[in-house]
């Protein structure tokens, strides 16, 4: 059986791999090449400048700030989003009290409804979500401050996106809100494939919901969580974080550089400042960060696979 196996696999993969090479690997190589030039992006002539762009990047304060924020995004967003999603999914599928005549393992009352509600934000495009929240965060007449006023908290009227200490968290909250539903559905699907007898056995042994979650649900769901982690991290480093920062924040990227992220900086350098080569240099740095992130997740997540 082993003989010719690779040829067999390669036969199937040739076309996708060729497409992959053309549309993914080749642009990689191209942009790494451009990062060693002084290309403006607005004219076809440029020359090689060696490591100048990289030297400049290491001295660039805004680059370091954006890197810091991107890393924070990649750490905080997956943790918060996945924890929330796991919690919700567990409550929807497993966490309910046993009702008379019903199945042993069930979700909380109205779980079907919750499942749909959680998924709602996923239907909206990220640009619309960002706009909606930009309105909600409006300190003068936005929904949040109006609500605070309605509750009699007239003295508590934060500037939200206008406050450098809050702005980044406001942006993250939006991303969590918009993404959590997808993972609730993903984890729900994962939980549905866990055999009910495992839970029943645990219940017979007198395990609490807490124990059930950490001893049964989480270990059996580990693969899904890991993929979710990578996916969420990429989202936090990539297009989604760009969209919310670009649409919602002061500047964009502010106030006082408090929300600038690497993707935004790439965009600004390439398309606002006409420094495409420097932008690709930051892009290469972003690539390294993304690779490192994926490597860490894969390594930390490596576990013995359970067969069931």
């Amino acid at each position: 059986m082993q003989h010719g196996k690779y040829r067999f696999i390669v036969g199937f993969l040739a076309l996708p791999l060729a497409l992959y090479a053309l549309f993914v690997v080749w642009p990689f190589i191209q942009s790494i090449y451009y990062s060693f030039t002084d290309w403006t992006g607005l004219s076809p002539d440029f020359k090689m400048v060696g490591f100048d762009n990289y030297k400049r990047m290491l001295d660039d304060e805004i680059f370091w700030k954006s890197l810091q924020h991107s890393l924070l995004f990649a750490l905080v967003l997956p943790v918060v989003t996945l924890s929330l999603a796991l919690f919700f999914a567990f409550m929807i599928n497993v966490g309910g009290r046993r009702r008379k005549g019903g199945p042993v393992i069930t979700g909380v009352r109205g779980s079907g409804f919750y499942k749909i509600v959680y998924f709602f934000p996923q239907v909206l495009s990220i640009a619309i979500v960002a706009l909606l929240f930009a309105f909600a965060y409006n300190p003068d007449s936005g929904a949040i401050n109006s609500l605070l006023r309605g509750l009699g908290l007239d003295s508590l009227q934060p500037l939200w996106l206008g406050d450098p200490n809050l702005a980044l968290w406001c942006v993250m909250a939006v991303l969590v809100w918009s993404q959590v539903g997808f993972f609730v559905v993903l984890f729900s699907a994962g939980m549905a494939s866990i055999p009910a007898d495992l839970y029943e056995a645990a219940l017979l042994d007198g395990a609490s919901r807490f124990t059930t979650f950490f001893r049964i649900t989480l270990p059996l769901l580990w693969d899904t969580v890991q993929s979710g982690w990578v996916y969420m991290g990429i989202l936090a480093l990539g297009a989604e974080s760009f969209a919310v920062v670009q649409i919602m924040t002061t500047g964009p990227g502010g106030p006082d550089y408090s929300t600038t992220v690497m993707v935004l900086y790439v965009y600004q350098k390439a398309f606002r400042d006409g420094q495409a080569a420097y932008a690709t240099t930051i892009g290469v740095a972003l690539l390294l960060v993304t690779l490192a992130f994926a490597a860490v997740v894969m390594r930390l997540g490596r576990r013995e696979r359970l067969e069931f």
């Binding site: 642009p27 942009s31 990429i234 990539g238 690709t280 972003l286």
Partner: peptide, 11 residues
Amino acid sequence: LISVPAMSLLS
């Protein structure tokens, strides 16, 4: 997946 965010910008 890894290549998505970086490349869509660069290319």
